[in-house]
Design a protein around this nucleic acid. Structure first.
Length: 454
RNA sequence: GUCGCCUUCGUCUAUCGGUUAGGACCCCAGGUUUUCAUCCUGGUAAGAGGAGUUCGAUUCUCCUAGGCGAUGCCA
């Protein structure tokens, strides 16, 4: 059982496309069939190599691996040409030379009369031999099909017109190429966005004219922005890679996308393997869904808290490189990750929190410094006691902080907070005793000294 | 305009005609806590409107409204 993802390379891989890919991928894997990637690049003017690369990059990051492809429709032009002449020869398609102007006037006129704007078949019996090629759609009857997510859909042929299947330059158009490729690639279920529902009856007529067996269709509802309108740039990030940049884990995005329009009872958390195992088209929701950034963030936090440290490090590496943070052997990165994971919602936050362990700083946050370094006594006492501390462990360090607080008759916070600022520079750090242990005696003493000079 | 699709808490969703309509995110309250977090407990909150079928409709049918999509020599 095969499915495919067929993006047109006119931009990056966006959230909606990624979900379509995910569902098609999950379905094929669930069926133990093939997932095929096909690039629909027949619009030469709008397609670009950069977009192809961006789409492949997005899919690769998400781990949506394909069993075949990427195929490019531009490599199938001969095949399309053959099919088009077959249609022409059998009288199921014809040339049309109507000018753009005539077509426009025709549309305007019909619309003004309150009728469906469609081609009137002007050139149908002219026996022309140049121009665009139109498919002769059946004039009457209904096209009925059972969509695997939407159910029964019926469209009257009177609503459909003779669609163009080849442009003046001979190049094929979308409705023809999908039909040919889906047939040739033995696609069992065409899984795609529901903006294609209206094309489906036309394609079904094409299949029938060609005498080909129909695939099943499954049309996925759209993803809307938080305000319920079509997802666009003003809703924030729409590109998959923008989520990588924002510090999301691919499994979090995948889990989120899976639950957007699909469900398995009350289950919220799905590993990638579980998505494959449990995915069923019949559990896909019919209604469009709004993108909720808060829930995605919650999932990301969940996966940051539970993922193996090595995996976190692998994903983190990209961010560290981007921020020019270099991990050294001096401090155990895994211990640092453990100390950070509970307080990081994104990898960006984690990378940021990691900085203080591997990069020295020269200044403290001005405002916080004024507040916490005003009274030097806690830091002086801390420094004196830590300097002579032999067993450099969190427990010992904590005992010293408590002792300092006791000697000065202040609360733990009065010592801990200045200490935290001294070590981090910006006040953002976790359990201060643990942070101090990880940082190591040298750096701790140095930074305390620096704080005293503030 | 015309055609198609859709409609359960603010959001994502569950519900095989009979449920106090459940879960999750968000939000709020309380608890744990060395900042910020995490974590735990509890809470607020929904069947678009109107007919019909039925002993009984969120669930089936129809109408209306609203949203989205299509109406391209884009895909």
């Amino acid at each position: 059982m095969n499915s495919r993802f067929a993006p047109s390379p006119t931009g990056y891989l966006h959230i909606g496309g990624a979900r379509t890919a995910l569902f098609a991928w999950a379905w094929a894997k669930n069926q133990q069939g093939k997932f095929i990637l096909r690039i629909e690049d027949t619009d030469l003017a709008r397609s670009s190599k950069a977009s192809v690369a961006a789409i492949l990059e997005g899919m690769s990051w998400l781990g949506l691996d394909y069993d075949e492809g990427p195929y490019f429709q531009t490599e199938h032009f001969e095949r399309y040409k053959t099919v088009i002449s077959q249609l022409l020869n059998s009288g199921k398609a014809y040339y049309c030379e109507c000018s753009e102007k005539r077509l426009q006037e025709l549309r305007d006129g019909l619309m003004a009369k309150g009728e469906k704007a469609k081609y009137d078949g002007h050139c149908r019996h002219k026996n022309l031999s140049s121009g665009v090629v139109r498919f002769q759609n059946p004039a009457a009857g209904n096209v009925v099909f059972t969509d695997l997510v939407k159910g029964k859909i019926s469209v009257n042929n009177e609503e459909l017109d003779d669609l163009i299947i080849a442009r003046t330059d001979g190049s094929p158009t979308y409705n023809l190429t999908v039909v040919v490729d889906d047939f040739d690639m033995k696609i069992d279920v065409v899984i795609r966005g529901d903006d294609h529902i209206n094309n489906t009856p036309k394609q079904i007529n094409l299949y029938q004219a060609l005498g080909w067996k129909l695939p099943d269709f499954a049309h996925l509802p759209m993803i809307l922005g938080a305000d319920g309108s079509r997802l666009s740039k003003r809703h924030g990030a729409v590109s998959v890679m923008a989520y990588r940049e924002a510090g999301f884990l691919p499994e979090a995005l995948l889990n989120y996308l899976a639950r957007l329009g699909w469900s398995h009872g009350d289950k919220e958390l799905f590993s990638t393997a579980e998505i494959i195992e449990l995915f069923e088209l019949k559990n896909v929701n019919k209604a469009p869904a709004s993108f909720d950034a808060d829930k995605l963030l919650w999932l990301n936090q969940h996966y940051i808290q539970t993922a193996p440290a090595q995996h976190l490090l692998d994903e983190l590496a990209w961010h560290l490189q981007k921020n020019q943070i270099e991990i050294t052997n001096e401090i155990d990165i895994f211990k640092v990750i453990e100390s950070l994971r509970k307080r990081s919602k994104t990898l960006v936050e984690m990378a940021f929190g990691l900085k203080m362990f591997y990069q020295d700083f020269t200044t403290f946050d001005e405002n916080l410094g004024k507040k916490h370094f005003k009274n030097k006594a806690p830091l002086e006492l801390l420094l004196a006691k830590l300097m002579v501390l032999e067993a450099w462990t969190a427990a010992e360090i904590k005992a010293i902080i408590e002792k300092v607080a006791e000697e000065l008759s202040v609360g733990f916070g009065k010592v801990g907070q200045p200490f935290r600022l001294a070590l981090s520079g910006d006040g953002n750090a976790g359990s201060i005793d643990l942070v101090a242990e990880l940082l190591g005696k040298d750096k701790v003493l140095k930074r305390l000294q620096m704080a005293l000079e503030f």
